[in-house]
Design a protein around this nucleic acid. Structure first.
Length: 545
RNA sequence: GGCCCCAUCGUCUAGAGGCCUAGGACACCGGGUUUUCAACCCGGCGACAGGGGUUCGAGUCCCCUUGGGGCUACCA
């Protein structure tokens, strides 16, 4: 049975790269009827945060990537947090030391830096100088007494090339002379990533490791470790990386970078208010704009919202907040470096699982194209692709996350809203087009451009009066009856429907963008419609005169 | 610098030596539809990085060059 895993280190939100890695492992497991494990790699005590681990789990769940064993649900090979597996690692490290396959080191960080600098200067690889005689237990005591750090390194004694049979890249061979004895236990007693990952994958029965290209050069080390410990070698597959369409790596830094650029371009922004919006001091804002410091993510997000800047989505939550569907992301990520080979692009989860094949994964890097993502979202937003109940659930979650007034609507209304907005690109667009119906009549904000073009120029206001009179006589209010009424009105007045619909639209929505006008009127209800027309007439009649 | 990986339209890609006059999708441009924004329909633009081989025949195999990426930590 194929067993795959996703092993994030909890240092922040789940990002695009991590989600893609998780997805490929998950697809492989689901396709083959195998198991998919989740393991938290929290051996770096300096970087981990407890909430980050929970957030990663939450993000995966939102994407619909589920696991068969993991920190929250347990399993036969737990615990699934590396910080809770210390005893296991210690035993294997002791085993390697006893067998003289690993040895203690007592170098200070300064000494190691010196070694590295010397190697750089001489233009050679930084290979750690292995002592001829390995330090003994008493040497360890002595070093500790002197206050020196104690670490453990693996002795690399193999002379044959290390061969990686990569499921994606084919055979890769590396000379052992390129490899340095690396640390397997840190001075704080924790194993390094290399040690922990090798032991866990063995003990948890992981058969296939699909990971990013950044791990390719770790693999010889891992294989050496497996050999030294008498473990089996799992199958490896190293995926290409995905880079951002705004240039460079798809990294967290993109959001602050974009914000900084946008703020600098705004000549007349109130910096004090901006700093306040981000809950940072004016000084902090200043150093940020000078490029010296970077505020934390919540501050960046808050300031972006204040300034009305759209930040590039990097983390999975960013896509959620921007109104993308998890179905879209899963579909899109899967196609970044893989394709079914039959030309299909828009696929749901089951189709992806059905079609997935490791041998069709590409080797070349790809660019994250947000426009294509948006087009995918448009497709997944259609009820022909995604069940309406699913769309309603996602829409409600989106509305609640963003504190939208539309969240007041019941499920039946949300369903209707989604249906009449078929063709929208994101949930955000649907929300923007619909929120007019959930605001107080007096809270409508008129778009000056729309007012000028539709109401003040020409006879927009007169038409509005006519429409109001006609609507007031309408008995049963349905989109169909409204349509019939407005159409006959247009005919009677010898004008196009637009001459009637547009003023009405601006009157009830405040701008020229709305769902189809008949639905918009119906949704709002006749009383509110008449009230808003009246408000509009009184507000702009004088302005025109 | 060293080691490793990669290379087809702007982007994601199809392509397993003759099915290639290189196909699709997104984007872009033009047109249609239309009560707005979208969506939708039709059409168009547009690529084998360069150079050597191998072969009757190369986008496909080999080599070199160039370009891009990754790694080079007591981070994962």
């Amino acid at each position: 049975m194929i067993v795959t895993r996703f092993a994030p280190s909890p240092t922040g939100y789940l990002h695009v790269g991590g989600a893609r890695t998780a997805l490929f492992n998950w697809l492989l497991a689901r396709k083959t009827g195998g198991k998919f494990l989740l393991r938290i790699e929290d051996t770096d005590m300096k970087r981990n945060t407890a909430t980050a681990a929970d957030q990663v789990l939450k993000d995966l769940k939102w994407l619909g990537i589920d696991w068969d064993e993991g920190p929250d649900i347990g399993g036969p090979n737990g615990p699934y947090k590396q910080s809770e597996r210390r005893a296991i690692y210690d035993a294997y490290i002791a085993q390697l030391i006893d067998a003289k396959k690993a040895y203690y080191c007592f170098d200070t960080p300064e000494e190691l830096t010196e070694l590295r600098l010397a190697a750089e200067k001489e233009k050679r690889n930084n290979i750690y100088p292995r002592p001829d005689v390995f330090p003994s237990a008493s040497d360890v005591e002595k070093a500790k007494a002197e206050g020196r750090p104690v670490t453990v390194r693996l002795a690399i004694t193999q002379t044959d090339p290390i061969v990686i049979e990569d499921e994606i890249r084919g055979t890769i061979s590396i000379e052992p002379t390129e490899l340095s004895d690396f640390i397997i236990q840190k001075s704080d007693g924790f194993p390094t990533y290399h040690m922990a990952v090798v032991i866990d994958d063995e003990l948890m029965g992981v058969t296939h490791i699909i990971r990013g290209q950044e791990h390719l050069m770790n693999t010889p080390n891992h294989q050496l470790l497996q050999k030294a410990l008498g473990f089996r070698v799992p199958k490896y597959g190293h995926m290409s990386v995905t880079v951002s369409d705004s240039g460079g790596k798809l990294s967290k830094r993109e959001r602050p970078k974009t914000l900084k650029k946008a703020i600098k371009a705004m000549a007349d922004i109130d910096t004090d208010a901006l700093a306040k919006a981000g809950s940072i001091t004016a000084e902090e804002l200043e150093t940020f704009l000078k490029g010296k410091t970077t505020p934390d993510m919540p501050a960046v997000d808050a300031m972006a919202e204040f300034a009305g800047v759209h930040l590039p989505e990097i983390n999975i939550v960013d896509f959620f907040r921007s109104g993308y569907l998890p179905e879209t992301l899963v579909n899109f990520f899967a196609l970044l470096g893989w394709n079914p080979g039959d030309g299909r692009e828009i696929m749901n989860r089951d189709e992806l699982i059905q079609a997935f094949d490791l041998s069709r994964v590409n080797k070349s890097n790809s660019l994250f194209d947000r426009q294509k993502l948006m087009s995918f979202n448009t497709e997944h937003l259609k009820t022909t692709l995604t069940p309406i109940e699913t769309l309603v659930t996602h829409f409600r979650a989106y509305l609640e996350e963003n504190d939208s007034p539309v969240a007041k609507a019941d499920d039946a209304s949300l369903e209707r809203i989604i249906r009449i907005n078929e063709g929208a690109r994101t949930l955000e667009q649907i929300e923007q087009k619909t929120r007019f119906a959930f605001l107080a009549d007096e809270a409508i904000e008129y778009d000056p451009k729309a007012v000028k073009k539709v109401l003040l120029k020409g006879n927009g206001l007169e038409m509005l009066k006519v429409v109001a009179e006609a609507l007031a006589t309408l008995k049963d209010l349905t989109p169909e009856s409204i349509e019939a009424l407005l159409r006959s009105l247009a005919e009677e007045k010898q004008v196009g429907l637009g001459k009637i619909a547009q003023p009405l639209r601006v009157a009830i929505c405040g701008n020229t963008i709305s769902p189809p006008i008949f639905d918009a009127v119906d949704m709002l209800g006749i009383n509110a419609v008449l009230k808003r027309i009246e408000n509009t007439l009184t507000t702009f009649q004088q302005e025109k005169d």
